[in-house]
Write a protein that binds this DNA or RNA. Structure first.
Lengths: 152, 152
DNA sequence: ATGAGTGCAAAGTGTTTGCAACTAT
DNA sequence: ATAGTTGCAAACACTTTGCACTCAT
């Protein structure tokens, strides 16, 4: 199994950006770097906060609106993806082939737990044949209780 | 299979309200009636709108804040349940034993489709034994594309 | 009578939009 | 040069909170 560095992941994302004919701007580069450097799932606010701590005052000044718009364009370019959580903000992460995963949210501690990408394969097949519904399992977090928070 | 009328469902909910030692107020009665009468999943706004059309000016004047607070107390009394949708407002429905169901949201048309309550039983068992995660499958809608909206 | 429920105004998140200034191509 | 990006201010949708008043028990 090949694990990629933040630098490699960032470069790959930038390359894809160019491929798609999208403009390479400071904000986009910075935002991709933040996501490449983090293994976690970040909300728009988290990202804005990390940008605000950047050495370059230029990047540190990135406006929240820009963060949202940049996230939106990166999602459309399929460079990043977002996951909706029941409460609170959507979270974003790089689309890293070979790192696909589903999301579980603990209703107790709020932790996001990654689950195997094939967890819902059976369910998906069943829904497709029974209802003609094409499940998109990565787009929403499933909720429940993690081991630590589980009641009784 | 026994199907219950709106009246019966409303009565059962009111009974439960009393059982739980909760006060019976006009707002709560009206709100339960709205939900009992509707098979669909209603947002707080939907409910407020329906109340606003009520004959009784008293009920029609129900404030949105009250709707939210009433929904909250009914959820806590386990008389109703809410489902979170990726975009937009949470939706509420009566907890009707024998009518449990999961929720699928079409990303195309926004339709909510009910699915069999046991759809995720296998997944649930797998998550419990592998990760100690106790899945709560009814609390969030799964997303995807319905037959009509599915691409190609 | 007393504590729970309600209306109102206001604020709090998370996100989007209109417009003018700017910049990557 | 020009279309796509950005910053700013403002609005938006959904939900919560503080406070005084009212009502169910």
């Amino acid at each position: 199994m090949k694990s990629s560095s933040a630098q490699e992941r960032s470069d790959a994302a930038m390359a894809r950006l160019r491929e798609r004919g999208q403009r390479v701007t400071t904000a986009r580069r910075a935002l991709i770097d933040v996501l490449a450097r983090s293994d976690a799932h970040l909300s728009a606010d988290d990202i804005a906060d990390r940008l605000a701590e950047h050495d370059s005052p230029d990047i540190a000044a990135t406006h929240r609106t820009t963060v949202y718009r940049t996230l939106d364009s990166l999602v459309r370019a399929e460079i990043i993806a977002h996951v909706h959580l029941p409460h609170g903000a959507a979270t974003y992460h790089l689309v890293d082939t070979g790192r696909a995963h589903l999301h579980l949210l603990c209703r107790g501690c709020g932790e996001i737990i990654d689950a195997a990408p094939d967890l819902l394969d059976d369910v998906r097949a069943r829904l497709e044949s029974s209802a003609g519904f094409r499940l998109d399992p990565e787009h929403v977090a499933l909720t429940g209780w993690c081991r630590a928070c589980a009641p009784d």
